[in-house]
Design a protein around this nucleic acid. Sequence first.
DNA 1: TCATTTTTATACCAGTCAGTATTTTTATAT
DNA 2: ATATAAAAATACTGACTGGTATAAAAATGA
Lengths: 199, 199
Amino acid sequence: MTTTEHKSLRGRPKTIRAEKVLEVAIEAYWQNDLADVSVNSICRAAQASKPSVYREFGNEDGLTRAALESYAEQLLSDVSKILQSGQGMNETLDALIDFIITDARLEIGCLFHKMRAGKNRLGPKTRELVEELNRAAQGGYQRFFQDRRSTGDWYGTVSTDVAAKYLGEQIALALAQRASGENATTIREILSLALSVFR
Amino acid sequence: MTTTEHKSLRGRPKTIRAEKVLEVAIEAYWQNDLADVSVNSICRAAQASKPSVYREFGNEDGLTRAALESYAEQLLSDVSKILQSGQGMNETLDALIDFIITDARLEIGCLFHKMRAGKNRLGPKTRELVEELNRAAQGGYQRFFQDRRSTGDWYGTVSTDVAAKYLGEQIALALAQRASGENATTIREILSLALSVFR
DNA sequence: TCATTTTTATACCAGTCAGTATTTTTATAT
DNA sequence: ATATAAAAATACTGACTGGTATAAAAATGA
């Protein structure tokens, strides 16, 4: 909802940097427990007044949604690129594991998965986006398994739906472990073990 | 810390039912998001005055710790019984899966895993207990894998340490899915798939 | 009867929260 | 110049938080 900017001609010129507020918000939600991040603290850190932030984002729900929107935009396409690379099952899984374990933007976990884990504390608009992103991710995973099955690259007994959910949860687990500071090689071993069922 | 009861002879007799307060607290922490449960709400629900609760449990941290203590006591031995049944790998995993998917006390997830997931929001005493329980669980899992390996029942390439962590996380995942209302057969399929790497 | 001890109940404290009313500032249009 | 519009800054609201001061109540001991 940061669209529809009515370039007003009159009145005091806007000085608030919505982009900067979003940056600060993403950083805050990413680094801290969601329940510990308040609109107040974000305003302070971004040096923006509360009324300005509320005019820009409506309410807390709008701010968190905008933050997640901005965050996901940067990251989501990378994963689908890996899944749609057209490589075989083994190569794709290897690339996926590597990405999840080493990408710097996931160093302390993934904001999307963090919000998904604490879904019931989110406002309706943010929650809706979380569910939308989740559906998109699940759909991507499922298409991946359908492709692998149609090319004879995978003969799993489980449905592509369950396989997709499984993959999504194992990725979430690895990211949660990164967030909690677990040893990188241990995370890799656990994720590799989990995904070995597809090889 | 509910021990050392100094059966005082004089003074107004105690009417607060610490047991009832704990019951209410466990129920509240179990059903709701941890951040939504306040000492105030527990006092209201248990019909106990705040000063009485604070005299009994010290502070919020003491209350949450006592609640987790009471909860874990009831449940933890069941899991170790399954792991120490002396049965083979397959039978033990089957029993474990069955327990996690069907036990009524885990219907909406497990309080221990819930607190472990939100560890950084807990007070020091409760957090200490969470870590202690986690170590105990990990130790139990690891001993299980050591036993299976020594009896030639398991030839896994990963270390018993990684296997134990893997098992613990897959159980946590299944319980989180129960907590979020996921379909029981789906949870079972995912957990079975995850643990199939040990068979 | 009356002092002592312990628990209770009530009401309060300071801090934080999300959200907003009010006033001041800064621009443009006439 | 002056009206108007929009945003800014400040300060507020009411609700809730964890925690506590205070005083009344209810028991025992002398």
